[in-house]
Structure formats: structure tokens, C-alpha cells
Amino acid sequence: MIIRIQNLFPVVMLSGAFSLLSAALFVSMDAVDVAFTEAAVGAGIATVLYLSAISLTGAIEKPPSGSRAIPLLVMTGLAAMLLYGTADMPAYGDANAPAHIHLMPEYITGTRTQIGIPNIVSSILASYRGFDTLGETGVIFTAGAGVLLLLRRGRPRRELANQGGNE
């Protein structure tokens, strides 16, 4: 549906709904923190961003033109590869998958003994992989400053050879 509909407004709504849906799925897979973030960020902030962008640019999409063969080809190729790759993966929920036995026990006991907060996700986020979180802040800052830089000349006008920086 997201692919087909040409009015962008319902598309955005649908994608927001999709985000919420995926958040629900995350809960069912025990990832409550992720679900929470996805609901807030993916379904919330992103939708707001989309809506404001649409309000600035117009909501009607033109019918797509051009061949669909190449995208479809890429798509099937990609799907085939991914399926080939997942075929050898440990089955869903397998407790003995290498990912669950290599470092995990240490994280869990570490959280219990060294950090002392119950949420393991938070403990890893804030301590073991705290630097990632710092980087994440960097990413947000980049995005904020970038959007600011891109949109600071708010009113629409033609941007042609406006040379001469130091006026």
C-alpha cells in the first residue's frame, strides 16, 4: 500500500502505523526499550517530520514512470541473498546460538554485580557501550545542525549563481 498510494498524506500515516506495529512486534520479542523508542521516535518524531516536509513541498505524487524491471531485479537478487544467508542462521529463539553464549553471560552478571541497575539494556547502553551513545548524540547534533544549515533561508527563492560570500 505504501508503494501504491500516490497521495503522500495517507502514506505517511501508514508508515507511522507501520512503525507502531513494529514497536508492538518488538515488545513481543522482549525488546521493550526498543519498542518504546521506536514508538516515540519512529512513529512520533519521524511522522511529524514527514508531515512538515509535506506541508512545505506538496502532497501529491506523480504516477511513477520508467521501467520497473531493474528495481524488481535488484529486489529479487537481494531477497535471494538474504534468504540464503538466513538459511544457515540459528532458528528463532534458539537459546544456544553463539550470540547468546559468547559475551552475554558476562553482561548479565556484570550488570548485576558491577552496575546495579536492573535494566540490562540501560546498563550496557550507559556503561559498556557508553561511547556508542555519545556517538549517537553526535549524530543527533549533526542532524540538527545540518537541518538548521540547510533550512535557515526559510523563504522560497530561486537559488542561482548568488556568488559573493562576504557581504
Binding site: 526499550d33 519512529g42 517530520l49 559475551l103 547502553l125 549533526t142 542532524a143
Partner: peptide, 16 residues
């Protein structure tokens, strides 16, 4: 929990 941690970061990156 580790994938959860990674995805938390990735969500933010995605929104950015």
C-alpha cells in the same frame, strides 16, 4: 540485550 542496545542507537541514526 545487546541487539536492543544497537538498535536503540540505530533508530536514532535512522531518524537523523
Amino acid at each position: 540485550p545487546l541487539p536492543h542496545v544497537l538498535i536503540l542507537t540505530a533508530i536514532v541514526v535512522g531518524v537523523a
